[in-house]
Write a protein that binds this DNA or RNA. Sequence first.
DNA 1: TGTTAATAGCTTATGACTGAGATATTAAGT
DNA 2: ACTTAATATCTCAGTCATAAGCTATTAACA
Lengths: 168, 168
Amino acid sequence: MKTTQSPTDQPAAPPADVPTATALKLWVILARAAASVTAHSTADIERHGLTPAEFGVLETLYHKGPLLLGEVQKRTLVSSGGTTFLVDRLEKRGYVERRLCESDRRARYAALTPAGKAFMAEIFPAHAEAIRRAMSGLGLAQQRQAIDLLRTLGHEAEGLKDRGAEEG
Amino acid sequence: MKTTQSPTDQPAAPPADVPTATALKLWVILARAAASVTAHSTADIERHGLTPAEFGVLETLYHKGPLLLGEVQKRTLVSSGGTTFLVDRLEKRGYVERRLCESDRRARYAALTPAGKAFMAEIFPAHAEAIRRAMSGLGLAQQRQAIDLLRTLGHEAEGLKDRGAEEG
DNA sequence: TGTTAATAGCTTATGACTGAGATATTAAGT
DNA sequence: ACTTAATATCTCAGTCATAAGCTATTAACA
């Protein structure tokens, strides 16, 4: 169980430049933290036979009310085809229904059915509790601090997407 | 473009309980921030015709040197079959090679070839720069703060996975 | 030594999701 | 009115990755 390294196998040194090294470290930590919490969230969701993406659609409709498919898409970060697919499946299960949009006949609303609403009312509290537990490594004040930092980080990263590869 | 809401369509109120509401908000912000940075990372990686998972393997080997496939798996958060698949493809491209492990004949090392090492030496600096730019919404001190918070968060969430659904 | 359990990696079946293009409808400009 | 562009959703082929089970090898223990 010991590594046999020939002289040429020496790993490359990380960047010496402090800002870049810090950003890379933050990236690793951020990705791992998100993955850990995702694991908790996913584990809870799968108990109910749903995929995370399906749950995301239900949760969005549960908290926002009926929404155009395009709005669902933006909020759940899923592709256009994926949204159609997800709503199809949730419709087959009786949790969601499509409704016509009177002012634009291309568009469709997605809305929870009474069954879908009842289902979410039943499972959401336990899900919220699972998330609360996953976050319990941080106290309330620390969580607020993290929210502020990550919101700033996210907004800037999001904005940078559009304006190509300029300097920052 | 106006929402037609029947009286039954009113969205559910978010949890009134402050710790739970805060944790849920943090979860949304965390997921979005991670997604935004991932988008930058992925965009840079795809310029070279690699998937993020492939790049993850190369990056791990680049910085850690030769590693058993199982160790690669743990570090890249990919399934066992996925690791086999990824190393297969990188081997076909000439970036990675498998080596026997003398002390355990079930095991295999994955190691960068000279070509793989040269490739990473060529593309990694620009990738690191892309990550630095994606993180530029936060100053150096803020990034360090975020690292501390997310590390704590991640460790606790990770630890909670094992010990079932006890209280925290 | 012989038997059982654990481990490393590979194979295969499966499935969720993406992305490009198709269709239907609306908006804009002439 | 007519043409062109933009928008909303849907269709579908292709892909990445997972999960369960398989083989080979090693470790544990009587």
